[in-house]
Each structure stands twice: as structure tokens, then as C-alpha cells.
């Protein structure tokens, strides 16, 4: 078993942290995992992405050409990675700010108005958690509870008060589950 996930968006959307939470959760659930960030000069104010690979054996390549899952937080991320997603894979779209439909017909598309939901919860910074909730609901590998305990373990002390909002964001995102085919 190996799942390759690319999370991509603007710098500041919490792309790298969402990936780290997945990686922590995978590790604590006994999986092999790699987290590989984009670390180019484009990170400052530009796009950011990370590749998370979760597997049940030693992981080879830490970079992938065609992920099973793309979490696209903004339009440039969709434009860059849409064509690379594996057929039958998942494309989780932040439909609040991605202003075009997905062209691919051979992938599962999940549109999540993540910005609106985060704003309704009262904190725009929760966008990444809404998207992560949608990912977890459609990829039955790690539970929301696991992610919450990783948040408790790894959020800096000054952000611990945000955990209830994070839980709401994850839960709201998890409602965007595809019907089983």
C-alpha cells in the first residue's frame, strides 16, 4: 500500500503544516511516511507545496510524478498539477478561490468552499484544516481524531486555544465525502 498526496497552494495557506500533520499522524499510526516540501525561492509570497507519501513498506522515491491525491488550495496549483493526478485519483478543490472547473473526467473531484467555511467558523487560517478534513473523509487511512491529537502535540502553545476551531474545520470539511461508487 502506498498513497501519494500533493498539497499545494499559496505561501501562508498552511500547506506545509497540513502536510506535516498528515505525516505525524501516519508515523504515529505505524506507517512509513515522507514529507518533502518545495523549498525554492518561490516560497516567499508565492506558491508552496509538499508531497506526503504514506506506505506500509520502506518508501523509495520521495517525489512522485503522478499523485493519487491532489489538494489544490488555489488556481495555480490546479493548473500545475491537474494533468498529473492518477486516473481514478482524488482532486480536492478549494472552490472558494478556484474559479474554473476541473477538466479531467477520470478523477474524483471534491469541491470544498474552504475559505467560506473557515470564515464562518471565524478564522480564515482554518482553510487548510477544512481541506484536510475533506481529504481524510475520502481517504480512509487516518482518522480525524488522530489529526486532532497531532494538533494537540504539535501546535505551538500560543495556538492551542485554536484547537476547538480546528476540530470544527476538520469536521466541516469531512462532510464533503463522495458517495461510494
Amino acid at each position: 500500500m502506498q498513497v501519494d498526496i500533493i498539497i499545494a497552494g499559496f505561501g501562508g495557506q498552511g500547506v506545509l503544516f497540513a502536510g506535516q500533520l498528515l505525516a505525524y499522524a501516519a508515523m504515529d499510526n505505524g506507517y512509513h511516511v515522507t514529507w518533502y516540501p518545495s523549498y525554492g525561492p518561490e516560497m516567499r509570497g508565492g506558491t508552496a507545496n509538499c508531497t506526503v507519501i504514506i506506505a506500509d513498506e520502506e518508501i523509495g522515491a520521495p517525489v512522485v510524478g503522478s499523485p493519487q491525491v491532489l489538494l489544490a488550495m488555489n488556481r495555480p496549483s490546479l493548473d500545475k498539477y491537474e494533468s498529473s493526478v492518477k486516473p481514478d485519483g482524488f482532486l480536492i478543490i478549494n472552490s472558494s478561490i478556484i474559479d474554473r472547473p476541473v477538466v479531467r473526467k477520470d478523477v474524483h473531484v471534491i469541491n470544498v468552499p474552504a475559505n467560506e467555511i473557515a470564515e464562518k467558523i471565524g478564522d480564515k487560517r482554518m482553510t487548510n484544516m477544512v481541506m484536510l478534513g475533506a481529504l481524510l473523509a475520502n481517504l480512509p487511512l487516518l482518522s480525524i481524531e488522530t489529526i486532532v491529537s497531532e494538533l494537540r502535540a504539535h501546535l505551538p502553545e500560543r495556538h492551542q486555544k485554536l484547537i476547538p476551531a480546528n476540530i470544527r474545520a476538520l469536521t466541516e470539511g469531512a462532510r464533503f465525502q463522495l458517495e461510494p461508487v
Partner: peptide, 10 residues
């Protein structure tokens, strides 16, 4: 190489 410097693994 740079990827081993930058990536995270358990």
C-alpha cells in the same frame, strides 16, 4: 542532496 536535507521522515 538537498532533498534529504529538506525532507522529513520518522
Amino acid at each position: 542532496d538537498g532533498s534529504l536535507g529538506q525532507m522529513m521522515e520518522p
